[in-house]
């Protein structure tokens, strides 16, 4: 998967975020390369989700710059930022589907908003996206409250993929799923990435997902970020990282994954 000169789709330099007096990130640097799956891990409260929100533009950093697809998102005008947003898809925890719309309408929302496709074509694209994420055809007519947690995540993924984004951001995609559902979701992300040529930025707690589909792993620890592969991170002297990957769950996942 690695090319000799990797194409950087996302570049974070010196990111500092703080809420009131609480410092979340202090000088985070991160590059995300085209076509890779990057897993972001860290203890609860270490600012993984805040990092994702900063990349998407929902949280404004106190300092530092974030470039997505060559644009500094802090410096963009509102209209340009919205246009850029169409080039990445976000899957929030538990899908974040609009509860008043059916799954089909949910997937159609970005298409209606951002494209000039005919209604028939939008319906057709939505149907294909719903099938691509492995939902049964009749799910399109259901409301989010009628779906299970795993199906809601898949539906959220279909909506995130509606505009054929180049970058897919996932916030804990396997949290709350049973092991079979989580493994199936990992597989789905892997196959979609392969089929659609996606770059995936994934915040996760799930060490099995890391082993199964992530090319590189970024560890948020003590407000700083450390990037490496599974094997290189295991050699790290840092106590928390060693415990994370060397603990019983970590070892089990690595045995089967590697």
């Amino acid at each position: 998967m690695t090319t000799p000169t990797p194409d950087t789709v996302m570049r974070i330099r010196g990111l500092v975020t703080r809420f009131g007096g609480h410092l979340v990130h202090d000088g985070v640097d991160l590059d995300v390369y085209r076509g890779e799956v990057l897993g972001v891990v860290g203890a609860s409260g270490s600012g993984k989700s805040v990092l994702l929100k900063a990349v998407v533009g929902l949280v404004h950093p106190s300092a530092g710059r974030i470039e997505v697809l060559g644009h500094d998102i802090g410096a963009l005008s509102e209209a340009r930022r919205i246009a850029l947003q169409a080039r990445y898809g976000v899957l929030f925890q538990d899908g974040a589907l609009f509860s008043s719309l059916t799954v089909g309408q949910n997937v159609a929302v970005p298409l209606v908003e951002h494209t000039d496709l005919s209604p028939a074509m939008i319906e057709e694209v939505a149907r294909v996206k719903i099938a691509m994420v492995g939902l049964p055809a009749d799910a399109a007519l259901k409301y989010p409250s009628q779906l299970s947690g795993g199906m809601r995540k898949r539906a959220g993924l279909a909506r995130a993929l509606a505009l054929d984004p180049e970058i897919l951001l996932l916030d804990e995609p396997t949290a709350g799923l049973d092991p079979i559902g989580a493994a199936a979701f990992d597989q789905l992300i892997g196959s979609l990435k392969h089929g659609l040529g996606l770059t995936v930025f994934m915040v996760t707690h799930d060490i099995d997902s890391l082993a199964a589909i992530c090319d590189r792993i970024a560890v948020l620890n003590g407000r700083k970020l450390l990037v490496g592969t599974l094997t290189s991170l295991q050699q790290q002297p840092d106590r928390w990282i060693r415990d994370y990957f060397g603990g019983p769950r970590g070892r089990a996942a690595l045995r089967t994954g590697a």
Binding site: R127, V128, K129, I130, A131, M132, A137, D138, A140, L141, S191, L192, H194, G195, L196, G197
Partner: peptide, 21 residues
């Protein structure tokens, strides 16, 4: 070659049945 996987994935999805409300 890079388009093959995409076309296969989309065409497989396009075979899903159409449901009408």
């Amino acid at each position: 070659p890079e388009h093959i996987a995409l076309i296969e994935a989309v065409w497989r999805a396009a075979d899903s049945e159409r449901v009408v409300p």
